[in-house]
Amino acid sequence: MITIDGSQGEGGGQIVRTSLALAAITGTPVTIERIRAKRPKPGLQRQHLVAVQAAARVSGGQVEGAELGSRALTFHPQQPTAGDWHFDIGSAGSCTLVLQTVLPILLHATGGSTVTITGGTHNGMAPPVEFLAESFLPVLHRVGISATVEVQRHGFYPAGGGAIRTTIQPAFGSNSSSVPFELLERGKALDRRAEVLIANLPAHVASREAQALKHGLHWSHSEVDEREVRADGPGNVIIARLRFANVTTVVSAFGELRKAAEQVAQEAVQQIRRHLEAGVPVCEHLADQLLLPLALGAGGRFRTVKPSEHLTTNAAIIARFLGEVVTWEEQGADDWLVTVTGR
């Protein structure tokens, strides 16, 4: 039994998700205490509870403390099990964060799986589906991991009502083809595009954001699109894609009640500028997501911006199960080399 302090580091839901996944994969029971202690609403919220329940279902495990608001739980996993899985968050909680819990587990199953999750597809506190589909999963494909994800319905905060569907093939079995990963250079710039999505909002919101993006980045009209999508409630997000020969970076900025369209666009502009100026191939958000699959596979190394608290916390949780396998070293201003030792 491993005991995890859920208040350490960034003190959020990522500690729960990584702990559940590693417990299921290694067959190690885990107790997580002080869950989300550093959040305004500590304890398990809807999306965290569904992630706990999903981890238990896909591993045939048992869990104590799986209830809304719970600040401690104990998880006894069995074995990753392939299947056609459906999970309903029942709120605008993030579908992608629930997926990040079960994805590594199902990669260790003996057969392929499909996972359908209903809830929020675009939530300001989580990576959007486009990040997983166009940045994270294509990078994992390079180390022998085969998974796809698509939006079936858009769901924004607070209405929810969205859905995603994922297909996952096993990657870490006896016939695994996992190879060491290396991403040290972006390669040649190939394309850059941004898309402003709105649902149940006036068209001028998208137009103002698009205009502010083009002005702030000096991008052409053909590089910024506007699109209205169907959803149960109002919603707005900017998705920008920076495509290089070796990696695609996906940047997002979310509209909120009483936040000006120009402010949303400026948030996207600042993220894009920082990434381009740093010159590294791996953005802040992709960096912490890569640790777990690399640690479970053949390892590897990549260059990124200064490690975030999410990254350092994730590395600390991984260390409790697999040992000190993640290191990072500063190479220059906003240029760090992260090395992960595989199993």
Rank of each mutant, 00 (worst) to 15 (best):
L190V: 11
D225C: 14
P158L: 04
A206P: 09
G187L: 12
K214M: 15
A210L: 13
I164P: 01
G279R: 04
K188I: 15
E267R: 05
E223F: 12
H218D: 12
T249Y: 11
E195K: 14
P234S: 09
A260L: 08
G160M: 01
Q263R: 11
V196F: 13
L286K: 06
Y157P: 02
F156T: 00
S220N: 15
A163E: 08
R208C: 11
D191F: 15
D225H: 15
G162F: 07
A212K: 14
A199Y: 09
I164K: 02
E256K: 13
R241I: 11
A240F: 15
S177C: 13
I239R: 10
G160T: 05
H204T: 14
L190I: 13
Q271W: 00
P234C: 09
R274Y: 06
T167C: 00
L201G: 04
A260N: 03
W219L: 11
S177P: 05
E195D: 09
C283T: 09
A231T: 10
N200Y: 03
R230I: 12
R165N: 05
E226A: 13
F156Y: 06
F172A: 11
V280D: 00
G279Q: 00
H275V: 00
R227E: 08
F244C: 10
R241Y: 14
E262A: 07
V196E: 01
L190F: 06
R193S: 15
A199M: 06
T167N: 00
R165M: 01
A171W: 04
T248R: 06
T166R: 07
L257D: 02
A245H: 13
A203T: 13
G160Q: 02
T248Q: 08
T166L: 02
S207D: 10
S222I: 15
N236F: 11
D225K: 14
V250M: 04
R274E: 01
H204R: 12
E284D: 11
P281D: 06
L217G: 13
S174T: 14
Q211E: 14
A231Q: 08
L217D: 12
R258K: 05
R243G: 05
H215K: 14
R241E: 14
A261Q: 05
F181T: 05
S207A: 15
Y157V: 09
P234N: 11
L217R: 12
T248M: 08
A268F: 02
L197H: 06
T248S: 09
A163M: 09
N236H: 15
L190Y: 07
K259C: 08
H285L: 11
K259N: 05
A159I: 00
L286R: 05
R193D: 13
T166N: 04
D232V: 08
V205P: 03
A203K: 10
G255C: 03
G155W: 01
V251I: 15
A163C: 08
N200K: 12
L201D: 06
A203S: 15
G173V: 12
T248W: 07
Q266E: 07
G279C: 01
E277F: 06
V247K: 06
P180A: 09
Q263P: 00
A231S: 10
R227L: 11
P234W: 13
V250Q: 03
E182M: 08
A245F: 10
C283G: 02
A268M: 01
H275I: 01
L242M: 13
F181N: 05
F172H: 14
V237K: 14
I164A: 04
I238K: 12
A163Q: 08
